[in-house]
Write a protein that binds this DNA or RNA. Structure first.
Length: 860
DNA sequence: ATACATACC
DNA sequence: CACTGGTATGTAT
């Protein structure tokens, strides 16, 4: 209970330019207590603001005492340059996903924030958070000014447009269907407690020191919450017990949970492993037809009681539910009686209105931390406030955003007509920040392999390829390219991503000689093509020729594919889904506009609900502990996605999956009393084993003759028609594909050199040069370097004379093993704890040439 | 079409 | 000791 406000929300230091700072403004706090509904209307909106600088001091919402945050001082004590943070103090913490709301009863919110700041207040993460907060503050300032500068006529117009939007939203609110949102309570944590009763009553969280997915109720009393780093959880609660996630178990429990839901609505929408939205209209009607004395309300409630009882009986776990006339309202209601309870919102306009008006806007699906802060800065904290200030919001936000506000304020969700199809697929990984080109390339290669493996499983190919890079500073870069033809092959994907990465890192280099440190790399493929009939140009060329026939990928997988789910797409498809969701981005700096009104149909949907599940999770690695079998061997070899030469079967295999686990979810919701749930976490690490990367070098030479034959397939790289004649095709491959690699690899290695040089003497430096410098044209020779049986390619790194551009200096830092050792150890299947991707990777380089030659060879 | 942001789990 | 991963969508240029 309690509500939030607590933190004072916003304030952010503003520095920079704008305005200034100073003045306090506390955003008012509402009083503290309140239970769930407590809301304080804060308004003020217009008032002040211009400068909007708020400052921080938090005011506790609760009266009395203004505790000056001890914590802030402690944060500064850490010595970090956090003057700004101190000023921003609470506002920054308000941006944390776990920063607000959700406190379980007696949590001392301030103390929690103080501990968080003391623990990580000076981290790069918090600094980045602060930057973003400053941006929001600027947006608030500009919007406020805009509103103040608005003429009476503009305001009248905005008010009129807003009225129309309200009318539209009200019309959409109907009471003809009955929805239920069902959610398992503290899912992962509950499963662990169920399976290990000793944990009951003790503060516990599922996850690792890096990230927590869920915390049980006991832990929440200390402020421990999902999506919080484990080390902060430990700081908040020293006795906190951390349990490693067991995704397979959660998945199986989830399957049971869902099988029960299916009896009430075979087309329910999933929101992760532990929650779902169902339309029980038909089910309710059937029961009423059976017994004409029943009312719809009573029937629905009884149905849900039964559903929850069945879930409990089958899983020995509790679930909470919300019943209402729209999915959106049902969802909000589901966490109303949180642990093990259900809430029925009467099907009348008055009931809905009474329920919504006092709600803090953050409880509405689609309004996250940023929008909450933004609106709070504009004087809107509750649904009632949102409605009261609709003219202002209409004037200040984009039509679409405004319409979304009106929809959520009325509990409306617009049904989606068409079934949703996947729009993209991606893989990303966080690792110890590094600026080593070799390491980054290796990681990138693995990511591309993993992604393409999944694409193959799901029969997907795509034209738009996007690289995501998160710097050590937590700034995120994203760059993409759209090819003329869909691709599904790892080598092409890698070639493209690599070229982009090289370009961007240089652009982001602080200094010419130093690459920026990167903490995450991700690759996404969109503009998807489904099914087997996707364009397969390169597949043909680079991807296997199956052993017999089809494609297969057999090579790898071979064996296993893990168990779990698979089927994937089988998923279900369903139809009419309705969902709604939408995310919005309301923070823009200026913008304003306001005119116009609307577009017609929109859909607003609640984020996170999908047709069926398939949500597969991400993986989790471990951190310290170990993972069980997970990491071990695996192998994932990777090599280029393709298949090894026929002669030797390459084990390459399985992609990881191993350790993977998956992502998770959680929900959050905060609220009042409890909140629950998890967010997703993952500590990931991929079990990827060694990196086998080969270095590419390639003297290009190639003549660029690219005869174009008209009806032939298009080259996925350049888009031109591929030659039909083998020799010409090979030439094309050499040239076209390699040029991308060359652009990234051929760049002076000064960066790497630099790294190497910087390495301590303890460092082992190995120079691996591309082994062969033969041109691709000499493809036959390449086979010699085929991967070894273990899937680890070429240990054969022949020290070669490093040519100016072709060789990369590989090094391992002191704690890393030299390549040779690394390889060896990788063979041991036993888990190597703490093995990070980075470490694994440190060893080799990528040789695209190798893959290409094999591929091309196939064509000959 | 590309880049950035926000959201949800 | 240092803040995840996957998908979707809105806004802007």
């Amino acid at each position: 209970m309690e509500d939030d406000d607590s933190d004072g929300g916003d304030g952010a230091p503003v520095h920079g330019g704008d305005e200034d700072e100073e003045e306090e403004e506390v955003q008012h706090g509402c009083g503290g207590e309140e239970q769930k509904r407590g809301v304080c209307p804060g308004e003020d909106g217009e008032g002040g603001d211009t400068a909007v600088a708020k400052r921080a001091k938090v005011t506790t919402a609760n009266h009395t005492t203004t505790t000056t945050l001890p914590s802030l001082s402690s944060a500064s004590a850490l010595g970090a340059p956090c003057a700004a943070l101190e000023r921003a103090g609470s506002s920054v913490t308000g941006r944390l996903a776990y920063g607000r709301n959700k406190t379980v009863k007696g949590v001392d919110h301030e103390k929690v924030m103080a501990t968080i700041l003391a623990t990580s207040g000076s981290s790069a993460y918090m600094k980045r958070l602060q930057e973003r907060s400053a941006r929001t503050v600027r947006s608030i300032a500009s919007k406020t000014q805009r509103w103040e500068a608005a003429t009476p006529r503009e305001r009248r117009r905005a008010a009129a447009v807003a009225e129309e939007a309200v009318r539209e939203a009200q019309e959409r609110l109907t009471f003809s269907r009955v929805y239920v949102h069902c959610d398992m309570d503290a899912f992962y944590a509950s499963v662990e407690e169920r399976d290990n009763p000793d944990l009951k009553g003790k503060p516990m969280a599922v996850g690792g020191m890096k990230m927590l997915t869920t915390a049980n109720y006991e832990a929440r009393k200390y402020g421990v919450r999902s999506a919080m780093p484990g080390y902060i959880g430990k700081a908040l609660c020293p006795h906190l017990i951390l349990i490693k996630p067991r995704f397979p178990v959660y998945k199986s429990v989830s399957a049971i949970f869902k099988s029960i839901l299916r009896d009430y609505d075979p087309d329910f929408l999933s929101g992760g492993l532990d929650e779902a939205s169902l339309d029980i209209t038909d089910c309710v009607q059937r029961r009423m037809d059976r017994d004409l004395s029943l009312t719809r309300e009573a029937t629905a409630c009884a149905l849900v009681e039964e559903m929850r009882a069945r879930i409990l009986a089958a899983t020995n776990l509790t679930a909470s539910a919300g019943i209402a006339c729209t999915r959106r309202l049902a969802k909000t209601c589901s966490d109303w009686k949180k642990p093990n309870g259900q809430y029925f919102l009467p099907f009348t306009l008055d009931s809905v209105t009474a329920f919504l008006r006092p709600l803090p806007i953050r409880k509405l699906s689609g309004i996250g931390n940023v929008t909450e802060e933004l609106l709070r800065g504009l004087g809107v904290e509750t649904v009632a406030g949102m409605l009261e200030q609709r003219a202002k919001l209409q004037l200040l936000f984009r039509p679409r955003t405004f319409q979304f506000f009106m929809h959520v304020a009325h509990g409306v969700s617009v049904p989606r007509t068409r079934t949703r199809e996947r729009k993209s697929i991606s893989t990303e990984r966080t690792f110890d920040a590094t600026s080593s080109r070799v390491q980054l390339l290796s990681i990138l290669n693995r990511i591309c392999s993993k992604l393409t493996a999944e694409m193959q499983e799901k029969q997907l190919a795509g034209r738009c390829l996007t690289l995501k890079v998160k710097l050590a500073t937590f700034h995120v870069l994203q760059r993409s390219v759209t090819l003329p033809t869909p691709i599904a092959d790892s080598s092409v994907l890698f070639a493209q991503m690599r070229a982009i990465m090289a370009r961007e890192l240089e652009a982001a280099s602080p200094s010419p000689s130093r690459m920026p440190a990167v903490r995450l790399l991700g690759v996404r493929v969109s503009s998807l093509t489904f099914g087997r009939n996707r364009a397969t140009v390169l597949d043909r060329f680079v991807t296997r020729r199956g052993n017999g026939g089809g494609d297969d990928d057999g090579s790898d997988g071979d064996c296993d594919k893990q168990g779990m789910d698979e089927n994937e797409h089988s998923a279900s498809r369903q139809d009419a889904v309705d969902t709604s969701s939408r995310g919005m981005t309301a923070v823009d700096e200026d913008d304003g506009d306001g005119d116009d009104g609307d577009d017609g149909d929109e859909d607003d949907m609640m984020p996170g609900l999908f047709n069926d599940e398939v949500t597969d999770m991400a993986m989790m690695g471990d951190d310290d502990g170990d993972v069980d079998g997970a990491m071990d061997d695996g192998d994932d070899g990777f090599a280029f996605s393709d298949v090894p030469p026929p002669a030797r079967p390459l084990p390459a295999a399985s992609h990881d999956e191993i350790g993977n686990g998956n992502s998770i979810r959680g929900h959050d919701s905060d609220n009042d009393d409890d909140d629950d749930d998890e967010v997703v976490v993952v500590e990931a690490q991929t079990p990827l084993r060694d990196a086998s990367c080969h270095l590419a070098i390639a003297p290009t030479g190639a003549a660029s003759t690219i005869p174009k034959s008209a009806g032939s397939p298009l080259c996925p790289v350049c888009g031109r028609h591929l030659p039909t004649e083998n020799a010409a095709l090979n030439t094309h491959v050499d040239e076209c594909l390699n040029r991308h690699l060359l652009s990234s690899i051929a760049t002076p290695d000064t960066h790497d050199m630099h790294n190497t040089a910087a390495a301590p003497t303890t460092t082992t430096t190995t120079t691996v040069s591309a082994a062969t410098t033969t041109s691709v044209a000499a493809r036959g020779t390449v086979e010699a370097t085929a991967p070894t049986a273990t899937g680890t390619p070429r240990p054969t790194s022949t020290p070669a004379p490093s040519s100016s551009f072709s060789s990369l200096q590989l090094f391992s830092s002191s704690n890393k093993k030299p390549p040779g050792q690394q390889r060896a150890s990788s063979k041991k299947k036993k888990k190597r704890r703490k093995q990070t991707m980075q470490k694994q990777t440190a060893t080799s380089a990528v040789d695209i040439r190798h893959a290409l030659s094999r591929a091309a060879q196939r064509w000959s």
